[in-house]
Amino acid sequence: MIEQKTIPLDEYTRSPSYWAIVLRRFSRDKVAMFALAIIILLFLVAVFAPYIAPADPLKGSMLRRLRPIGTPGLPLGADELGRDMLSRLIYGARLSLFMGITPVAIAFVIGSSIGIAAGYLGGLFNSLTMRTNDIFYAFPSVLLAIALSGALGAGVTSGLLSLTIVFIPPIARVAESVTTQVRKLDYVEAAKASGANNFTIIRVHVLGNVLGPIFVYSTSLISVSMILAAGLSFLGLGVKPPEPEWGLMLNTLRNAIYVQPWLAALPGVMIFMTSIAFNLVSDGLRSAMDIKS
């Protein structure tokens, strides 16, 4: 038999917590870290927009309409009303990120509550909620968002609300399916056998195992939300001019596409970059959370 050394209690290296392991694995993922850096940069830009932007994003000038990229004093040119493009893109990050994240965050809370409840309770309650949920699936998400915000009227709040409604069903569906899986596992039964009530089981064993996957799925929706929000603004439903927002900018610049194609594409490039960054981070998070692999 191997001799056992007695090590004093505090000298034991505490085996790192789940999230510490996830974080460490995530930090080794170069692609995800790069994407995360882009997102952090965008956030900083959005927060410090007034200090970074060289000019007022709302102040136009008829004299500098549609100046190309690289014009002296206008590094990224000027839009169809002669407003500084760089400043508008910088300020636009605020609303675009806000419209991308907020609906998903709200839908995460509501959708996972619905889904977890349905998945855990099962039976009739599950059928009722999930079939109601399915009704929303009958509409393509873009159409649903347009219909809802069309009915609610233009504006940031109604855009936010309609996007939230669009994202609740898919999140609820994912939450329901993972909860149903977890509910049937032995450790839930073991917890029951040791006297845990439903509330404890949901709070400890279901939430602990289910929130991760739902969270990962939700982060992948942020990019969709950004694109949808941009789409709503593009159609004149979300953000109202002259507010700088990337989707709206894409819309107002579309007539200039024959005159200044590069300029007109800039907001689209920003949307593309941001959404791909969110997607990559969500991918990295998913593989980092799959600890047993």
């Binding site: 085996s15 040791s194 006297g195 845990a196 602990g208 047993k292």
Partner: peptide, 24 residues
Amino acid sequence: ASFRGGIASMIFQDPMLALDPVYT
């Protein structure tokens, strides 16, 4: 709830499945 675990308790066949993987 007090009966389960307090008076009668159970051990399961496969401890890998019967222990929650996300808690120590």
